[in-house]
Amino acid sequence: MLEARLVQGSMLRKVVDAVKDLVSDANIDVSSSGFSLQAMDTSHVSLIAMHLRADAFEHFRCDRPMSMGMSLANLAKVLKCAGSDDIVTLKANDDGDTVTFMFESPKEDRVSDFELKLMDIDSEHLGIPDTDYCATVTMPAGEYARICKDLSSIGDTVVISATKDGVKFTTSGDVGTANVTVRQNTTADKKEDQTIIDLKEPVALTFALRYLTSFAKATPLATHVTLSMTRELPVMVEYAIQDMGHLRFYLAPKIED
């Protein structure tokens, strides 16, 4: 029996809205540690790894680990029916082929439940190695989203270069060339405007902008985004889900043939 009650139900909707355009169907794995989702996008160029800890839930009961295969588009439709302040409770039987979502308004004056059919999805699970990254940039999530959007209007490939002076995003296309440099800013009055760069050694990597732009759909989740890079390895783009967990995107680089 699975029963999990999330007071900030809107976090679930923001996570699903952030990933539903990259991944169509995915297995949500539930165990005593909480909810996890790992899936590659349809072109196998990027990977999503989400974890929501059990202690994020006001009530969490998971008698035995289970994997719930779902269409993320259908899940998004169901979560769209929840009020932004609703408490969301998930229920599923161990041998069940459905999962029920219950939405309760804060004043408990409105309760609704939606039952979603589960699917059999055979998804390949990848091992994500722990990496000691050369460069880690924590910046306002809105800034990152804006850079992706602005550069996408100029080119479709971006070189991200982290040096002691800052992080430079460069693209070029038929229109011309664009450079955006983001510098360390630890003195901003508001914490959410700060940019922190931790550089062990300079690194520059090339990526397809359309994936980085798609990752920015997670912007509503968090005030900051963290980009972690190391030579010749996928970039990790991470959004914290408040203090309940994380949503990580990994994107393979474009490398000299």
Partner: peptide, 14 residues
């Protein structure tokens, strides 16, 4: 010429 790599090239299947 730059070639897009697959994520599986970097993360072994578990």
């Amino acid at each position: 010429k730059l070639a897009q790599r697959a994520i599986g090239d970097f993360f072994p299947s578990a």
